[in-house]
């Protein structure tokens, strides 16, 4: 049908060729991103940064570039550069929340890669958490607090769809730490409690650090009933001796696991044939875990070199974009948009 349509219409054929080229450019970019992410943990981050700089990025994938480059800057020990990239990513994500007319037309007529990448809900929350940690590392408590507040506003916006959408226990825990460092014990307690609630809703057992933080912040906030409640739940922790302190180490462990996509075929009686009906994300164990203190945001790159993935994208399958499982046991439950 397409051939018949194009016959005798060179202008239309030219437009289609240009569109195909722009789409293939994206595929090449995705493949390069994926190759870079595979080298994390094995290659000097400075070398990877150079490689990333040499990679051309379509404007619609700029957010992904900033996220990845920011993480590479972090691995390279350049906090200011990492923060600069993440701040840019944050602003662009905000501006991309309005639906795009051209991207929707492109996605509907060609394929999903025409949509600008704006991160999954959990990635958006994680971005605030990484920024908060970077400000803390620079000793800027107020800067970290800004990120915690912004994260809170975003969580509330995301919850309009689904209660646990985008929620990360680590984000709440870091928020609690920031409040605690500022002496805001009531806010700290609320943040820790929210971290606990998220883990409970996901049937995860809270780590001992969170239990201690809950008890300590409830005590300092003067919430006696709550202290009793946590004592019953967790037992009575031994108090710190005079002159003792608490050292909190936040270790980012490895990379998020890459995902592959699996397709299911169903029989459509009206079409008298089998068709792709959907796809599932299958977590794949990440073999590259040599950078134990850092994690890297790899929103779309995990999918690109996979043949199945490309096939899905060429079919214009919706809802396949950029979901990744966080290795701290949380998920946003979204469809990637």
């Amino acid at each position: 049908m397409i051939t018949a349509l194009l016959h005798g219409r060179p202008a239309l054929l030219g437009a289609l060729v240009l569109l195909s080229l722009s789409t293939s450019g994206c595929a090449v970019h995705q493949w390069k991103m994926n190759e870079l992410s595979r080298q994390v943990g094995y290659t000097d981050p400075a070398v990877l940064l150079q490689q990333l700089e040499q990679t051309e990025t379509p404007d619609r994938d700029q957010v992904q570039r900033w996220l990845n480059r920011g993480m590479l800057h972090l691995l390279n020990g350049d906090l200011a550069a990492a923060r600069s990239d993440w701040e840019q990513a944050k602003q662009r994500i905000e501006s991309l929340q309005a639906a795009s007319v051209t991207e929707n037309v492109g996605a509907a007529t060609v394929n999903e890669t025409f949509r600008a990448y704006d991160g999954t809900p959990s990635e958006r929350i994680l971005l605030h958490t990484l920024l908060a940690l970077s400000y803390l590392a620079d000793g800027d408590l107020d800067g970290a607090r800004v990120e915690v507040l912004q994260s809170d506003v975003m969580v509330r916006a995301l919850q309009e769809g689904e209660a646990l959408n985008g929620q990360l226990a680590i984000a709440r825990y870091v928020g609690g730490l920031v409040y605690e460092l500022g002496g805001e014990w009531d806010n700290a307690y609320i943040a820790y409690q929210k971290a606990f609630n998220i883990m409970q809703a996901r049937n995860q057992s809270p780590p001992s650090a969170l239990k201690l933080s809950l008890i300590r912040s409830a005590q300092r906030a003067g919430r006696r009933d709550e202290v009793e409640r946590w004592y019953k739940a967790f037992g009575t922790p031994s108090p710190l001796e005079s002159g003792e302190g608490e050292l909190v180490i936040i270790a980012m462990q490895g990379l998020v696991s890459a995902k592959t996509q699996a397709a299911a075929s169903v029989y459509a009686p009206g079409l008298q044939q089998y068709n792709f009906a959907g796809a599932a994300d299958v977590p794949r164990p990440a073999p590259w875990l040599r950078a134990p203190h850092y994690s890297i945001a790899r929103p779309r790159s995990a999918r690109c070199p996979d043949g199945v993935d490309r096939e899905h994208r060429s079919l214009g399958t919706r809802g396949l974009r950029g979901r990744e499982r966080q290795n701290y046991g949380s998920d946003d439950g979204s469809n990637g948009r």
Binding site: M1, A11, L19, V105, T109
Partner: peptide, 21 residues
């Protein structure tokens, strides 16, 4: 009818992508 829609869509998309420059 379908042909016309596809033709219009492709041309419109091309024009819009050029206008973005």
């Amino acid at each position: 009818m379908t042909k016309q829609w596809i033709q219009t869509g492709v041309v419109a998309l091309f024009a819009l992508s050029m206008a973005a420059c």
